[in-house]
Every structure is written in C-alpha cells, then in structure tokens.
Design a protein around this nucleic acid. Structure first.
Lengths: 203, 203
DNA sequence: ATTTGTGGATGATGATCATCATCCTTTTTC
DNA sequence: GAAAAAGGATGATGATCATCATCCACAAAT
C-alpha cells in the first residue's frame, strides 16, 4: 500500500520536529507550509496527508517542543544522581543557549505567540509550566518544602525574563551583562545555602 | 493647501498610537495596514502619505510604545516625592496589567517579535532597557550603590518573566498564583530592608 | 471666487499563503 | 507479476496583504 510501512510515521515525525524548530526560531507564523516541507525535501502538496490543517501541526509541534525542553531541563537538573541546580542555571543563562533559539527553551521562544493564540495552546503551556515548577521544586532540596513552589516560581520567572531580555537586545555587551549578572546572583544564592564557601568562579 | 494645517501631524500621530496598541495586543504582524487605518475611520490608501513603508511605521510605533511604558514606570516609581518601588511592583504584577496588553509593558508585549526582527528594533529595545535599569536602580535607594545595577537587572528579569508566564497560561488559577506569589516575595524583600515590620497585606 | 496643493478614497497589482483536486509512483498483497 | 492503496508531486483557487497609481474634495493663497 504505497511507500514503505514505517515511512509515513517517520515523515510525520520529521515534519513535527522541523516545525518545532522553525516555530521556535521564526515564530508560529514565521514559516509557510511550503517552505517547511521543502526543508525536508518534500513539496507542499503532501502536507495534508499528515495533518488536517496547519493548526493541527502547530499543536503537535508545540507539544513536541515543550517535551523536548522538559527533557533537557530534567537532564541538566538530575543527571548523575543528586540534583544539580547550578548546572541548570549555568547552561540556561549561557550565550550558547541564548543563541540556540530553535532548540532551546520553548517557553521563551513561544510565549509571545502563545499568549495571543488560542486557548488550547495556552492550556498546553500551563500544563508544561506546572511540570517545570515540579522539577525545579524537586531540585530545591535545600529549601523548606513549604517554600519550594514559591521559590521555583520565582526562579523560573527570573530565568525566563533574563533570557528574553538577553535575546531581545541582540548580541551586545548588554546582552552578555544580563546573562552574567543574573547567573552570578542566582549561583551565589544557590551556593549560599549548602556551603557558603563554595563560591562560583566567574564564567 | 488641502485639509487643515495641523491635521496631517495629528493623523500621523493617531496612526502611530493605534499601531503601538495593536502591535502590543496582536503582535507586529498581527494587524494589516487596512485594518489599522479603518480603526481610525480612514482607508488604506492614505497610509503612504504618512509613512514610507510599513517598517517605518513599525519603528515609530515601537518607539512610541517604549516611551509610553517608560512614562508609566517613571510615574509609578517616583510620583509624589520618594521612590515607591512597592507601588510599581504591585501594579506591574496585577491582574489588571496582565490583561492590559495593548497599553501595558511594551517589553513583555513585544520581546518575542523584536528578537526575530531587524537589528534596528533590537537596538531601540536595548536603549530602552538601559533607561529602565537606570530608573529601577534609582528607586533601589536602600541598596548599596555598587549593587544597584545588578539588583535592577535581577528585578526586571523577574518581573518580565513573571508577567510573560502569567499571560501565557491565560486567565487561570495558575496565572493568579504566579502574580501573587512573585509579588509577595518581592514585596517582602523590598520591605525587609527599610523596616522589617511593615509587611504587605495580601493583595 | 478661482486656482492649486495635498490629505484621503478607490481601485489595481503582484506576492504570499493555506487549502484542495488531481495525477504519478512505489510498495505491499494476492 | 498484476492490481490496488496510499504517499508524494503538480497545479489551481481564493484569500489576505503591502504597495502604488489615480482620482476626488477641500483648504489655503492670491
């Protein structure tokens, strides 16, 4: 029955992944279906064999992007035994991450678009933020349990805001200052709790 | 010579103001020139008597939006003598502000779009952020002078991130929690320095 | 009052897009 | 191997836009 068995599912997934990257890089309306398919060596016609509409792809791609970012977050926070909040902070507020829009934090890349689009996307975002809060909360194991959610909320707000600022001012001295300054303050706070003498070296 | 003297400048300004609101509400690409002019009771044809291109309007409108937000910030921080950081925080993290996209904080409304658009807009944003840092720094008069810029950077990051989150999850319990939680933590910190006993009453 | 310059209106034009109908081609099943 | 089912290609359609040429109507200058 036409083409190889697994190939349809594979193509579908390739479209979703390419869209997840493009939407983060250029915005949800920033790429046409034709260009997206072309990127995969396909033409625009086949698109509707995989998705009922553009919106359907948008929903799938954003789910994929959110899961992708969650996976990265989880690895940075927990890989190798004990929670490693410092590693997450350093990576999140790095220039590399600032410049990796297509593969980096999906919240910062998509928040502006999602806030204006349908309620469905906002619900997906809300659920993801809940999961992120839980993950960060778990990593805040030196914080009083009843303060973990508040602190996680505060930390994520700061990280998201700092990254958005650093991206919005382009690659400038100010951009680097934002990343460095916020990162150092947060690292100092993290290190202060378990062992005040383990300070972060610059960079 | 055609229509009243001041009327052209007035129309020009009305277009800029309407665009500043629409771009914040619906995104820079979220409204067509025809719809924008219609909003003012005009037709699309006259547009090019006022602007050389759409991009020219975008630049002007964003400058206007940024100045508008700076003015609001300045008033909240400094009106009535002494710096009033608490008033600014409360207003910024209110549900009213969350729901006032078209007239509220221009950074959060435009950051996503600007990060993807030309360098010119990013430079305008960078300059505005510098001014905002200065204003907040001035208001941090209980902080050691050499720490004011770092603290201002941290505070703005947190505010921007929290508002973006609150907007991205729609009008939900989570949205209200984000605003309340971040606001209370920040207010507690602000109040802790000058007078530890002046705690904020909820809301 | 007539002339003239200009703001605004009307109506193209060409580009970009999402969507869909139709055709081609390959792979699986019998 | 022949038939058929479905993925993918081609091409069309209708909508939306930015931009521009042309026209109209009014206000200022004479």
């Amino acid at each position: 029955m036409g083409y190889s068995q697994a190939s349809k599912a594979q193509t579908h997934q390739r479209v979703v992944q390419a869209a997840a990257a493009q939407f983060r890089q250029n915005g949800i309306d920033g790429i046409s279906l034709a260009d997206l398919m072309k990127e995969l060596g396909l033409t625009h016609g086949g698109f509707y064999k995989h998705f009922g509409s553009r919106d359907e792809l948008v929903a799938e791609a954003i789910d994929y992007a959110l899961e992708d970012s969650e996976q990265t977050m989880r690895e940075l926070l927990f890989k190798g035994g004990k929670p490693n909040l410092a590693r997450y902070l350093k990576t999140y507020l790095s220039e590399t991450h600032r410049d990796s829009r297509a593969t980096g934090c999906s919240f910062t890349a998509l928040a502006g678009d999602v806030a204006r689009k349908g309620e469905a996307l906002q619900t997906a975002m809300a659920e993801q933020i809940e999961r992120n809060l839980e993950l960060v909360g778990e990593a805040l194991d030196q914080v009083r349990p009843d303060q973990r959610r508040n602190q996680a909320l505060l930390l994520l707000s700061t990280l998201y805001g700092a990254l958005m600022m650093a991206r919005t001012v382009g690659d400038s001295a100010l951009s680097r200052e934002i990343l460095r300054s916020v990162r150092d303050v947060l690292l100092a706070k993290v290190n202060a709790v378990p062992d005040a003498r383990t300070r972060s070296r610059a960079d």
